[in-house]
Design a protein around this nucleic acid. Sequence first.
DNA 1: GAGAAGCGCAACTTTTCGGTTGCACATCGC
DNA 2: GCGATGTGCAACCGAAAAGTTGCGCTTCTC
Lengths: 112, 112
Amino acid sequence: MSSPNLPVPAANPVAVFAALGDRTRLSLLTTLSDGQARSIAMLSADARLTRQAITKHLHVLENAGLVSSIRTGRESRFAYRPEPIAEAMAYLDTVSAQWDDALARLRALVEE
Amino acid sequence: MSSPNLPVPAANPVAVFAALGDRTRLSLLTTLSDGQARSIAMLSADARLTRQAITKHLHVLENAGLVSSIRTGRESRFAYRPEPIAEAMAYLDTVSAQWDDALARLRALVEE
DNA sequence: GAGAAGCGCAACTTTTCGGTTGCACATCGC
DNA sequence: GCGATGTGCAACCGAAAAGTTGCGCTTCTC
């Protein structure tokens, strides 16, 4: 999967959050975040789902830029990619920053 | 909506991310994050969707704990709630921390 | 070379999601 | 009191998501 030199899709916040919004995928990502690349077979081993279901989830994660895959021999290994997570956190930061600003202004107003 | 004294649902990370994984909802939340509570009519005014569609999205956000609503007179006003965002960021922090640890260990190994 | 392991692809089923429409009901303002 | 405003609820629809099954193709391994 993932035609070799096609750039990894831009980490669109909505797509990233959507990818994270499924417990199977969140669990896969958490597993992979230890830096160890794993094959589909390995990742499906301890899952209650079919290998194909896991494969689909991995592709969703890949399209969101959260993992990358390379085919080596007969197996394709998936690896964690940190960038989108950083961008997602940056996005959430802007949201909570706006909130904090609003709070600060309100407080200033109240305290005279 | 939201029976008065029922505790706001626990901010389950999966539910929060799923709620954020839609551009209409993300946009609604961004709007509300300025601290100003708004009625459904206000929030639907500048949207290309039906009032009912907006209402549904607001309920999704509410179930994820991202907003709260109170009925005042004939209108029900929705307000931003910061807690789930903080928890979501905390979750992402654990993921990226695990990644950083893995990187550090790898680096240490390589540098002897 | 033969069997096993690891995948990919395609078809199909079942829910879930995002949206709309229609209608009834409460409330506000004059 | 009455029209306008703001909602809530329910039914319905189409598209996408989640998952399964079946099958064929490579790649190891002995």
